[in-house]
Design a protein around this nucleic acid. Structure first.
Lengths: 154, 154
DNA sequence: GGCTCCACGAAACAAACTTGCAAAACGACT
DNA sequence: AGTCGTTTTGCAAGTTTGTTTCGTGGAGCC
């Protein structure tokens, strides 16, 4: 993965805010022609710098009103058990984000569900139904203050 | 915010996976003409169902290698203090996501930084430098198993 | 100097998006 | 059942955007 110059970083800055921005406008903003911008975007996409281009949907608009954080602590941390847990979490559509972490917990999950009843059913399936889960701690989001996947491009 | 029919939901499903998909292909997938798809997308964008269109960047590619979770517990939970905390967190570029939650903590943060040294400096500025922070708990991500903002559209 | 290798910009080209318009689908009311 | 009004659709033309081609100029290297 080659390193990025100032042009690339400026382009990324714009794209991670709005990837429908015409290449012509990006070109004006960074002092480059549209084809040059296009080639850089293509290269960064091929190199995996740009991982995806997606629309962000308001969860409430599709009936997924509740966001929940869960810390999960497991009993056995063998490579096999961890791998199995990772796959189970990754396959669950309600789980929006899943990280394997150090600290007082082993996994941190971000879950999106229509109602608390749905969350209750999910815990039954995901945690109580898995005998390697020692404990889990739930945090219900009252306010989504800042949501996104933007990163500083410095 | 009007409700969405089966066409809209299918379109959203596609767009939140790849919003560069041509409207013609979306049309084929949902059995609608391209202009019909275009009008629905426009309407959903105006209605705020589609919140943004963004490129997702690999943090490591721009030197932001470390993802960290933080639970923050505050001392005083007056409306004014909470509001102040929200604004401080929202304004911080290293903070990628911030939620105000119920449970054993008051805020949950997702932070992206280049190194642990940067995180240490950030805690100094953000937590130790704020006398309303009672305690904070850090979880360093070892593996990003599932990352995204996709939601079930069904 | 002469060479190759890249990245660039201008222009031509292809593809996608957008708009106008008439016809079809749907509801409400008689 | 029939009619009117509203809404949404598909088609076709027009416009914008994305992509490729080609020739030029600069950096590094014999």
């Amino acid at each position: 993965m080659p390193d990025l110059d100032a042009f690339d970083r400026k382009i990324l800055e714009i794209l991670q805010r709005d990837n429908t921005t015409p290449q012509r406008m990006i070109g004006e903003a960074v002092n480059l022609s549209a084809p040059a911008v296009q080639r850089r975007i293509k290269r960064m996409t091929e190199d995996g710098v740009i991982r995806a281009n997606v629309a962000i949907i308001d969860p409430a608009a599709v009936g997924q009103a509740i966001t929940i954080f869960v810390e999960v602590e497991v009993i056995s941390e063998t490579a096999e058990q961890i791998e199995q847990a990772k796959q189970a979490f990754a396959a669950c559509p309600e789980i929006q984000q899943c990280y394997y972490v150090t600290g007082e917990a082993d996994f941190v999950l971000v879950i999106v569900v229509p109602s608390m009843a749905d969350y209750e059913a999910l815990t039954r399936r995901l945690f109580f139904g898995n005998n390697n889960v020692k404990r889990f701690r739930t945090f219900v989001a009252m306010d989504r203050i800042k949501v996104g996947l933007g990163v500083p491009t410095s």
